[in-house]
């Protein structure tokens, strides 16, 4: 049986993306697992004491955990949605799931920053500034956490006792937090590493496959005509191309590189870089479940506006970041 050359070409491109960004993702996963293990409250009870001096460590852990949301599939979303209708609401978890906090955490996650660094240090700086900016704006415009079904404001968080529950833990994992878990540092590190690697291995693989397909099958002229240097509207359109991606920060970088290869202007792929981890169909659906339609639209508009504006600015100033 002869495999069509385009299929093999796509696999080769997939390999290229994995080789190019894989080490940065592995480093990010390992670093994050190490930090989370070091900040583990089960073995570091000082963190639970509520001391003001240690509060920043608590925030650091919450920030790290919020940076990798559990990847969602349409099936899990439907199941959760149906479950919400028929079952009583779960009590609000004392997690900083405020959309501003989470958006900033995803944008400036270790994986997002390290993969951006693979492209260029300037890209890392842009991602950092834009991520913080989006987080700040979402706080400012107040994606009304009071009316939301699950969100907690920063103010609420400060009032609550400092107990930690992972934002990404499934019910089975939540059960495990009460049962005796692995005790040695290495065992806990291994558990954290796997918990981190899990979304990256599945969602990352999916995102890289999409990027490889895009690189091989989409003609350059289409991208150049829509997002090229001659199109001022490119930075406004580019964020929409990430809708099909899985919302795991850092793994969208392959699609950003694919856009750059296919002839998108610098502003367009910078806008994509900022928006891709935050505006995906799965991510939006999850937000819609938690915050309702109006607030989800506000969230998407804020992200899209910031990403588009930064992209337009990059094009306007003629910044040519080497990628």
């Amino acid at each position: 049986m002869r495999v069509p050359p385009d299929i093999l070409a796509t696999l080769i491109k997939l390999k290229d993306f994995i080789v190019f960004f894989g080490p940065a993702l592995l480093a990010a996963i390992t670093l994050k697992a190490t930090l989370l293990t070091a900040l583990d409250t089960d073995t570091n009870p000082k963190l639970l004491s509520g001391s003001i001096r240690l509060r920043w460590l608590w925030w650091l852990k919450a920030f790290l955990e919020a940076g990798t949301p559990q990847p969602l599939t349409p099936l899990t979303l439907l199941r959760t949605h149906l479950g919400r209708r028929s079952l009583p609401q779960a009590p609000i978890q004392p997690n900083p799931t405020n959309p501003g906090f989470q958006a900033a955490a995803i944008s400036t996650s270790l994986a997002g920053l390290l993969t951006a660094l693979v492209l260029s240090p300037v890209v890392l700086v842009i991602r950092l500034i834009a991520g913080v900016g989006i987080g700040f704006l979402l706080f400012t415009v107040n994606i009304n956490p009071n009316r939301s079904r699950a969100a907690v404001t920063a103010k609420d968080l400060l009032k609550r006792p400092l107990t930690l529950t992972s934002t990404q833990s499934s019910p089975s994992e939540t059960d495990s937090s009460t049962s005796p878990g692995p005790s040695s540092f290495l065992q806990r590190f291994g558990k954290n590493w796997l918990a981190e690697a899990d979304p990256y291995s599945s969602a990352g693989f999916y995102n890289f496959v999409l990027a490889a397909i895009f690189t091989i099958f989409v003609p350059s002229r289409l991208v150049e005509n829509a997002l090229g240097t001659s199109q001022w509207s490119g930075p406004l359109l580019a964020p929409l191309l990430g809708l099909l991606l899985a919302p795991v920060g850092g793994t969208e970088i392959a699609m950003v590189l694919a856009l750059s290869i296919k002839g998108a202007s610098t502003g367009s792929w910078v806008a994509a870089l900022i928006a891709f981890p935050l505006i995906t169909l799965m991510g939006i659906a999850s937000k819609w479940q938690d915050y309702g339609t109006q607030q989800t639209v506000s969230y998407a508009l804020v992200v899209w506006t910031v990403a588009g504006s930064v992209g337009l600015l990059v094009n306007l100033l003629g910044i040519n970041i080497y990628v």
């Binding site: 050359p5 385009d6 299929i7 093999l8 070409a9 796509t10 696999l11 080769i12 491109k13 290229d16 690189t215 091989i216 350059s220 290869i261 296919k262």
Partner: peptide, 8 residues
């Protein structure tokens, strides 16, 4: 296939 992969 490798030719197709490197052309972009």
């Amino acid at each position: 296939p490798p030719c197709r992969a490197e052309m972009p």
